[in-house]
C-alpha cells in the first residue's frame, strides 16, 4: 500500500512538472493578452517533435548524447520564437479586437493546422527518443526505483523556470511592464506602453515554455500527432485553478492536478480523466478567482 502511495507521488510530481511548464505559459499569455490560445497544446507537440528530431540527428552524427539537454532548450526556443512569433504577428494581432468566440475558432483552426502539419512532417508513426532518460540513470526513493530524469531533473527544471519567471517579472523592466499590462491594459497604454510589443514578447515566452514542456516530455513518452490535445485541456484546468496570470498558482495547481491524476490512476482508475476537472471545479467553487487570483472590480 505505502509503495503505491510513493509511486503515485513520484508519478504525480514528474507529470505535474511537465504540466506546470505548459500551463504557466498558457496562464501568462491569457493573463496579459486575455486570449485563450487553443493552439497552445500544439507547441507542446512541436517542442517534443523538434527535440526528438534534433536528438535523433545527434545520434546519427555520432555526437555526445549529453548535448541533447542544451538541445532541448534550443528546440523549445526555436519553436516558440519562430512559430509562436509568426502566429502572434501575422494572425493573432488581427483578432484581438474581435469577440472571444472568433478568437477561440481561429486558435482552434491553428491547432488543427499544426496538428496536420505534424502528420505531414513526421508521419503518423510514433517517435521514441529516450536517450536522455537513460543517461541520468535511476534513483531509489523509499524502495521504489524511478528514473532520475523524471523525479529529479524535471522537477528541478520546473522549479528553475518558476524562479526565473519570478525574477523576470519582479526585477526586470519588461517583467514589470508585463505585470502592469496584465493588471490594466488601458492604463498601461495610456502611459505610453507599446502593448503590441508586450503581447509579442509574452506570447513568445508562453509558447517557448509550452515547447520546453514538450521537449522535456519527449524522452518519457511516445511522440504522436495530436499529443498536444490532452495537454491543452490539462493546462486550461491548471490555469483556471491557479487564477489569471498567477505563476505561483500555476505551480501549485499543476502539482495538485498531477498528484490528483496519478492517485486516481492507482486508486480509482475510472476517475483518472475526470480528476483534473474535479480539482478545478472544487477550487473554483470555493475561490471563483482561482487559488492565487485576486477578485478585482472593473475600473470605469
Amino acid at each position: 500500500m505505502s509503495h503505491i502511495i510513493i509511486l503515485a507521488v513520484l508519478d504525480g510530481v514528474a507529470y505535474g512538472s511537465l504540466v506546470f511548464l505548459v500551463a504557466v505559459g498558457l496562464t501568462l499569455v491569457f493573463g496579459v493578452m486575455r486570449i485563450l490560445n487553443v493552439a497552445h497544446g500544439s507547441f507542446y507537440a512541436l517542442g517534443a517533435y523538434a527535440a526528438a528530431s534534433l536528438g535523433l540527428g545527434l545520434s546519427a552524427l555520432g555526437l555526445s548524447p549529453w548535448l541533447s539537454y542544451p538541445l532541448f532548450v534550443v528546440a523549445a526556443a526555436a519553436v516558440g520564437v519562430v512559430v509562436g512569433g509568426a502566429l502572434e504577428r501575422f494572425l493573432l494581432q488581427r483578432i484581438y479586437r474581435h469577440e472571444e468566440a472568433l478568437q477561440l475558432l481561429v486558435t482552434f483552426a491553428v491547432f488543427m493546422i499544426l496538428d496536420n502539419a505534424q502528420r505531414l512532417i513526421w508521419g503518423v508513426q510514433p517517435y521514441f527518443y529516450s536517450e536522455p532518460l537513460r543517461l541520468l540513470g535511476n534513483v531509489a526513493v523509499a524502495g521504489i526505483t524511478y528514473t532520475a530524469y523524471q523525479v529529479v531533473f524535471l522537477p528541478l527544471v520546473a522549479i528553475a523556470v518558476l524562479l526565473a519567471l519570478r525574477l523576470f517579472l519582479r526585477r526586470t523592466l519588461a517583467g514589470a511592464v508585463i505585470v502592469a499590462v496584465t493588471e490594466d491594459r488601458e492604463a498601461a497604454t495610456a502611459i505610453g506602453i507599446n502593448a503590441s510589443r508586450v503581447f509579442l514578447l509574452t506570447f513568445v515566452i508562453g509558447t517557448t515554455l509550452a515547447s520546453l514542456g514538450g521537449a522535456l516530455a519527449a524522452p518519457t513518452t511516445s511522440i504522436l500527432p495530436g499529443m498536444g490535445a490532452d495537454m491543452i485541456v490539462l493546462s486550461f484546468a491548471v490555469a483556471a485553478t491557479a487564477g489569471l496570470g498567477q505563476i505561483e498558482g500555476a505551480a501549485v495547481a499543476a502539482l495538485a492536478i498531477g498528484l490528483g491524476r496519478s492517485f486516481a490512476v492507482f486508486f480509482a482508475p475510472e476517475l483518472e480523466v475526470l480528476m483534473p476537472y474535479l480539482i478545478m471545479v472544487l477550487v473554483l467553487l470555493v475561490r471563483p478567482e482561482g487559488l492565487f487570483g485576486k477578485a478585482t472590480a472593473r475600473k470605469i
Binding site: T172, L173, I193, R197
Partner: peptide, 18 residues
C-alpha cells in the same frame, strides 16, 4: 519606473528595473 521608461521609449527586456 514603468511610466518613465515608457516615456523614454526604453526597450531592454532584461534590464534590471532598479
Amino acid at each position: 519606473l514603468i511610466a518613465a521608461a515608457s516615456q523614454a521609449r526604453r526597450f531592454a527586456p532584461f534590464a534590471r528595473l532598479a
